[in-house]
Each structure stands twice: as structure tokens, then as C-alpha cells.
Design a protein around this nucleic acid. Structure first.
Lengths: 229, 229
DNA sequence: TTGACATAGTGTTAATAAAACACTATTAAT
DNA sequence: ATTAATAGTGTTTTATTAACACTATGTCAA
């Protein structure tokens, strides 16, 4: 294919902030770089895009390579292009953020990674490149989006007790919620289906398990009604 | 500078959705393309980035070239990179959206533009490339952001009557607002300063003019109080 | 087997915020 | 002096959100 723009071009990468929730803390997956620059530093999983590959496809490919998960929530976050952000030369990075269920993930160190590790988002190490700027933007996006879209379920097991949903909202938003008010609101949304089986962990009354019902949610959305927690 | 990524690279462009408000309608600035591909089509103003130039800087440069305005609200919107979106070859475009005061703009056709024109956002022509996908995203961003951040003032003259502010909200959000409730809310926010002089247009009672007071707004923000209209 | 412990589950009231609603005031034009 | 056109101003009703405490049910250990 002939190309009518013969000037020098920046390199183009995708980097993904991968969030998961372990029941107590929000965590992010980082890789330890095996190569220069920033060898030994922790960084967001990512890499250069292929010439015939959509941006989101590249992000999903990286995500599958690093964590083995597919079909998860993935959304474009922001594009970073400040000159000098990559010492190898001008590189633009399109950042994505992803929500995964911890139980479904098998994080594995790839070619470029000496190690992979889940860090609590409140205790991140110093990051390579400008990745330290990406994380707060990703967190802010997660927080604001959780309030009016049902994305939090991408962080929970397919079946979960309401207490876990509340714990997730409290942890991510950094607030405490009244149990009764929270349950009232959630149930009023009518987007959960009770499922057979109870959570039976610990010496106490077991809890009803629920699953997010995307059909119900779509019906609500079409009626113009809104999710809001 | 040595470069360690010797593979083919996409070209990188910025395109900007420029919004303005004429007192009745929200409008967007488009250029008529003078060159192939899409010669004769209307398109978003934009162009390829320079190798030593920040993304936002590139967007501001294009904005200044096309409209003569500087120092306006400009925000990154979304990055488009689907293979095939530019028939000349793989091109990634970082889209921005900008808010300008119509009175300060002198739109001028640049090198690549046969013409420049303000279109009402509800009556856009068929656009070049995938620019038809950009506009609804820009509109949605404007609408949602207007609700909780004081960006609307970037579309109004520095001095304006409250009726114009209300008209702007009604037009952009596609709703009608109660005059008394609207004024109560705006005044309660305490982010406007009345200025000397009245709007004296037409055979009717003149209106008090106000200006947005960013100092007041910053003080409010620091106190954790929120803008919401 | 019984009691202690830990989490699940459940309604009502008070406080706050949002929505509905109509008239008087002031200017320019005729 | 009258008309036309927009500016400006409070109160009541309704809806939403926040505050609040006890009973239920299971496991585990004595």
C-alpha cells in the first residue's frame, strides 16, 4: 500500500492497567521489566502494536498473554505522548484499563517480564516510564464509572454475596456504606438474580449468592432508567 | 537518538472537535478537504504531529491555525486506530475536543482546507474518514462533563446574562429548565460575579451580566464541595 | 448440647434535595 | 400611554437520601 506521509513517525504502544479485587483490597497487576530501559522496574503490561491490529485488540492480546484471561471488561483510558516519556525515542502509548476476576487469572511472566505481581493499589512501587501517571487516572476512571455503570461485577466472582459487593464499593470508593441502605438500593435496581447455593465461609450464618443479570440490566437501560449506586 | 523498535509504524495524527455556541445552537467547526482522500468532504480540523511535539500541543497548534484562538478549553477525547480508517495506510488519530467563544474566533481555511464552516451539531454533513464516529463521542463528553464541571463558560462570552447560561444548558442537554430553580442553583454555587453593565438587546428589561469567577470555583473545589447543575 | 461468636438479613423515620408553580419589574418601540 | 418582550423573585410539594438497631442462622469450642 502506498503511503503519503513519508515523515518520521513515533512508535505506538498499548499499556493496560489490570484491576482485580481479592475480597479486601483492590489490586493491580504489574510486571518487572527484564530489559532496558527501566530494567528491574515494575511497569504496566503492554507492548507495541502490530500494523494490522486494532488498538483494543492489541490490548486484549497483551492481557491474554500476561494473565490468560479473555472476554473481560476493557476500556480505553487515555493516550500518553509527551516527548521524552520513552528514552528509546518518541513513543505514544494508548493506555487501557481492564477488570478481571482474580480466580480466573493465571498471571504469568512473559518474554519481557522477569516477574508478575499483584500490588495493592495503595502500595504501588515506583513505576517505569510515565506509568506512575497512568495509575491515578485509571483509578479515577474506575471510581467514577462504578457509580453509574455496573462494571464492578467484572471484579467479582460470577456468584457473590451482597456483602462482597458492598465491600468492593467501600474499598474502591474509600467510603463506608450503610448496609440496609446499600441492599435496598441494589435490590431496587433489579439487576441481580439470586442463585442456588450459599456462601459458607466461616462460623456464621451463610449468605445468599447473587449473579449480575445483564439481560435485566439491558431492559432497564432501554427504558431509560439509570444505574446509580 | 538510537531507536530500538525498527518495525513499521503507523502514522499519528490529532483531530479536534471544536464547539461553539451562538446563543441558540451548538455548532462545530469543520473544514472542507482540498486533497484526496475524501476530497470535497467535510472533516475535523487536524493533522499529523511533529516528532518533538506533545499531543495536546499539536492539537492547540491546529486549533490556532484554523480558528486563531488560543488558551481555550481543550481535552483529550479518544484515540481512533482501527486499521483501514485512513485509505492511505495505517493512521492513528488522537481526537481532542475544544470549547471556544464564537466572538473570539476568526475561522480561516488553511493549506489543506477549501473552506471552513460552522455547522449546527444537529445538522452535520457526511464526514471524511471515521470522523462521523468522533462527533457523538465528543457531544456525549461535553454533555456529561457540563453537569459536574464548569466548562460551559468556555462557550459563553466573558460577560453573559443568566438567561444565556440557561439557554446553553438547555440546548446542549436537550432539556428545559425551570428559570427560578436554575437561577437558585447557579447562585448557590457561588462561582459567578456580577459585573458592571447590563445586556441591552431588544425592547425589554436589560439583564444583569455575570462572569465566571475561577478563583471562587477553586476555593469551592478545595473545600471538597462540588459543582453540579 | 449448649453457648459464644460472626456475619446475614430486615423497616421506619428524619433530613435534605429537587421539582412544580405565577406573578411583578423594566426597558424599547409604537 | 400602551404593548411587547425578557428579567427577576419564594413557597410548597414531592422525591431522594441518610440515619438508625435488632433478630436470624450458621460454625466452632467447651
Amino acid at each position: 500500500m502506498p503511503y503519503s506521509y513519508p515523515y518520521p513517525r513515533p512508535a505506538l504502544a498499548v499499556d493496560t492497567v489490570i484491576f482485580a479485587f481479592d475480597g479486601r483490597m483492590l489490586k493491580a497487576l504489574l510486571i518487572e521489566r527484564n530489559n532496558s530501559p527501566f530494567k528491574g522496574y515494575w511497569a504496566l503490561p503492554g507492548g507495541f502494536i502490530n500494523m494490522d491490529e486494532d488498538l483494543a485488540t492489541a490490548a486484549r492480546r497483551e492481557l491474554a498473554e500476561e494473565t490468560g484471561v479473555t472476554g473481560v471488561f476493557l476500556e480505553q483510558l487515555y493516550t500518553f505522548g509527551t516527548p521524552g516519556r520513552d528514552p528509546r525515542g518518541r513513543t505514544i502509548s494508548v493506555a487501557y484499563f481492564a477488570l478481571v476476576r482474580l480466580a480466573e487469572v493465571e498471571a504469568k511472566a512473559g518474554d519481557d517480564a522477569a516477574a508478575v505481581h499483584w500490588f495493592p493499589v495503595e502500595e504501588l512501587p515506583k513505576l517505569a516510564f510515565d506509568h506512575g501517571k497512568v495509575m491515578p487516572i485509571a483509578l479515577e476512571r474506575l471510581r467514577s464509572k462504578m457509580r453509574y455503570q455496573p462494571i464492578a461485577f467484572g471484579l467479582l466472582p460470577l456468584k457473590f454475596p451482597l456483602s462482597q459487593l458492598q465491600q468492593l464499593y467501600e474499598t474502591v470508593l474509600g467510603i463506608t456504606l450503610d448496609k440496609r441502605n446499600f441492599r435496598k438500593k441494589v435490590m431496587a435496581l433489579d439487576i441481580l438474580t439470586p442463585v442456588k447455593g450459599q456462601s459458607t465461609t466461616g462460623a456464621h450464618r451463610p449468605a445468599q449468592l447473587y449473579s449480575f443479570d445483564s439481560k435485566k440490566y439491558e431492559r432497564i437501560k432501554k427504558r431509560g432508567l439509570s444505574f446509580e449506586l
